[in-house]
């Protein structure tokens, strides 16, 4: 009966410690009952017959899983809130990482685009691992502690509390909000860094005329940030939010057009870039970037106008 003992031991290994002996003892009794019944019919069982009998019982892991079905770390009821929280936290960290890296870039420690992107990725991933771990641990604890509370919460709702958003597109994705937020704050930091930075004065990366106009553009950026934060609260496109978005996107399109017409956009010192990139190629890259901003802004204006007519 070595095979039976090996089988019982294999099942026990897959079980929680507190139940191992009890379930193992009962499973062995049941298997031995079956062996007895078969031996009554066919005489003593050989190794192959015992092997077949155990195969019929099922793989030890499958049997153990039937006794103790695996419990998910985060319950199904909490999963949507868990994912939402995770995206929110990661989104906020993305915004913070963008600002942190932008500050380092503007202070001149990392000048190339590659290093800037690498810095952003590295900063975001470091904070992201930490946040992921703690958010997950918090929800594991909530899953263990608040099972009854979840059931109560899902009963306390009313259809009248549901937002009147009938179109799929009305749902605003978190990643869209955080991308907008990070871009707007990044732009605000680039514009205001020379003034806000403590210590000795440094020059803006923009030429004087562009910089002045961009400073006057700050209220539009502020409206965009408030609009994004409001979107974060409602998560649904309404006529008012669409109207504000059209206004902000139009202002961005106008600013992009003005920047394309007013060159050079940047204040570039040829000696700093000597031997790496030509000033003309950097100016061209910025121009292409501004053109992309123009296209995206115009696309958003047209998209939101069409949406507005459908609401």
């Amino acid at each position: 009966m070595d095979l039976v003992e090996r089988y019982i031991a294999a099942v026990k290994r897959e079980l929680p410690t507190r139940s191992r002996e009890d379930i193992g003892r009962e499973l062995e009794a049941n298997i031995m009952d079956k062996v007895d019944a078969l031996e009554e019919q066919h005489g003593p069982l050989n190794q192959q017959q015992v092997n077949d009998l155990l195969l019929e019982m099922g793989h030890p892991r499958t049997v153990a899983r039937e006794f103790y079905p695996p419990k998910p770390l985060v319950s199904v009821q909490l999963m949507p809130i868990y994912l939402n929280t995770l995206y929110m936290v990661l989104g906020i960290l993305f915004v913070i990482s963008s600002l942190e890296v932008a500050t380092r870039w503007l202070s001149g420690s990392e000048m190339t685009l590659f290093l800037l992107m690498k810095g952003l990725l590295s900063s975001f991933l470091n904070a992201g691992y930490f946040a992921f771990t703690w958010v997950t641990i918090a929800f594991i604890i909530m899953t263990r502690d608040n099972k009854k509370q979840q059931d109560n919460d899902s009963c306390q709702w009313s259809p009248t509390q549901l937002p009147s958003a009938l179109n799929n597109w009305q749902h605003i994705r978190l990643q869209d909000i955080f991308t907008d937020l990070a871009s707007l704050l990044f732009l605000a930091l680039v514009i205001w860094y020379p003034i806000l930075r403590p210590g000795p004065d440094i020059e803006s990366i923009f030429n004087n005329e562009t910089w002045t106009v961009l400073q006057w553009f700050t209220p539009i950026i502020a409206i965009g940030v408030v609009n994004s934060l409001w979107q974060l609260r409602t998560r649904i496109w309404t006529r008012r939010l669409l109207g504000i978005n059209i206004g902000v996107s139009s202002a961005f399109a106008a600013m992009a057009l003005w920047l394309m017409a007013t060159r050079p956009i940047l204040r570039l010192d040829e000696t700093t870039w000597e031997g790496t990139l030509s000033v003309a190629s950097i100016e061209l890259s910025v121009l292409v970037f501004v053109f992309v901003v123009l296209v995206i802004s115009l696309y958003e204006v047209i998209r939101d106008l069409r949406r507005l007519t459908r609401l």
Binding site: I23, E26, E56, M57, G58, T62
Partner: peptide, 26 residues
């Protein structure tokens, strides 16, 4: 007991694997 219950079920025309029945009883 486990095995006798399975026999009873079989005699009543209900087939069930032991790997399913014993955990169900538990």
């Amino acid at each position: 007991y486990g095995y006798s219950l399975r026999q009873q079920l079989q005699d009543s025309g209900i087939e069930i694997d032991e790997g399913t029945l014993y955990p169900l009883i538990r």
